[in-house]
Amino acid sequence: MLFRVSLLLVLAALTSACATAPTQPIALQTEFWDTPNQKVGVVISEIPAPDVFLPGAGCLLCVAVAEGNHATLSKNVDTFDTSELQSLPEEIKHKLESKGLEVVVLSEKFSGKALKKIKSSDPQSPKFDYSSFANDSDITHLLVVEIQGLGIHRNYSSYVPVGDPQGWFSALSYMVDLRTNTYAWYKPVQIFKASDIVWDEPPAFPGLTNAYYQALAEGKSTLTNDF
């Protein structure tokens, strides 16, 4: 009995050590705006295709049932547009320039996979080495917008939906000081928007479709309103 309890404790300790604490939001310091000779590069990740996300449907059969129940909705989600996000780097550039900063939008698409990983116990420090961006251009700061997911989100508990589907937008935006490889600003964004009246209106799902575009617009606004 004692052996079993000890084993459980060891396992719990091991698994909790594996999980790294998430980076907490970091506000942009007011001194940032007053520091001379700074140039910001803005880069955005590939925008994923909108999809239906059903987290919590944890077994294969649960997933199959949940996806089957949302087949018509999935078909509608395939028609969702993401083009409004393409202008995000330019909008950020415009905002930063209006504050007197020199800004350049990088044409490449950002991917963390291309960067060297850094081991750090500090959850508030970057997990990658971004210095290659400084080598390639004369920027001092890199502002990254990573679009992590968008579409329709509905929570499940195995087979059971635990709420209505909602429009969903998830992104991570941060600014790295390339001279020190530290975050100057860090902002995760999660927007959920419910349908205004009812959601189950196949085939066009106007309420949910509207909620998706509301989430997108609100997400964009949240990403830019710190500047």
Binding site: N69, Y159, V160, P161, G163, D164, I197, V198, W199, D200
Partner: peptide, 17 residues
């Protein structure tokens, strides 16, 4: 039967508009 019932649970009230 349970799955069919459950998947309907959590849906919105059928408000008219």
């Amino acid at each position: 039967t349970a799955i069919a019932g459950l998947t309907g649970c959590g849906s919105q009230n059928h408000r008219h508009y």
